[in-house]
């Protein structure tokens, strides 16, 4: 091939401080088997979720335990704090943004009370996944210790 198409890669930083691990560690098959989308999961050590990139809040779920940030490239990232936390009906979560807000990489989106959520019996492990896999060619995942807004966890190659 003489012509190589230029690839568009979107780097997404960790929305949480903690440890980035494989989705297979999430105790919910919908996430663990990447049925909802490919990505990683973060085991957080503190309760502030920040934006993984510059973008727009495509959706804040009304029980405040999950949100989607859309990047200019068309990539949409779903961050789902904990497992089955929809059941908490918003208790323990404090949103700092609303749907439609323009956000910067590293900007706090949702504060959550880790101790409270765990005391109710819900894991706080947080899947960070592609909400619209159809625009994604390939996802490169990075695991290990991460700092919110700082270390890249996903490099997303966007389809042409």
């Amino acid at each position: 091939m003489f012509f190589k198409k230029k690839k568009t890669i979107v780097s997404l930083v960790s929305p949480l401080t903690g440890t980035s691990v494989s989705l297979s560690e999430v105790p919910d098959p919908a996430f663990a088997e990447a049925l909802l989308g490919d990505g990683v999961a973060i085991k957080p050590t503190n309760g502030v979720l920040v934006s993984p990139c510059d973008g727009i809040v495509a959706h804040l779920i009304d029980t405040h335990h999950a949100c989607i940030v859309g990047h200019d490239s068309g990539v949409e990232v779903l961050m789902h704090i904990g497992v089955n936390t929809v059941q908490l009906k918003g208790e323990g979560f404090k949103p700092l943004i609303k749907t439609g807000d323009v956000v910067k990489q590293g900007q706090p989106l949702i504060e959550f009370d880790m101790a409270f959520i765990e005391s109710k019996g819900y894991p706080v492990i947080t899947p960070v996944i592609m909400a619209n896999g159809e625009v994604v060619e390939q996802v490169t995942k990075h695991t290990g210790e991460v700092k919110a807004g700082d270390n890249t966890v996903l490099d997303v190659e966007v389809k042409k």
Partner: peptide
């Protein structure tokens, strides 16, 4: 009972 949140939405789109 909890409506269409992330998991049900994922199941619908799949």
């Amino acid at each position: 009972s909890t409506g269409v949140h992330a998991r049900p939405a994922g199941a619908i789109l799949k």
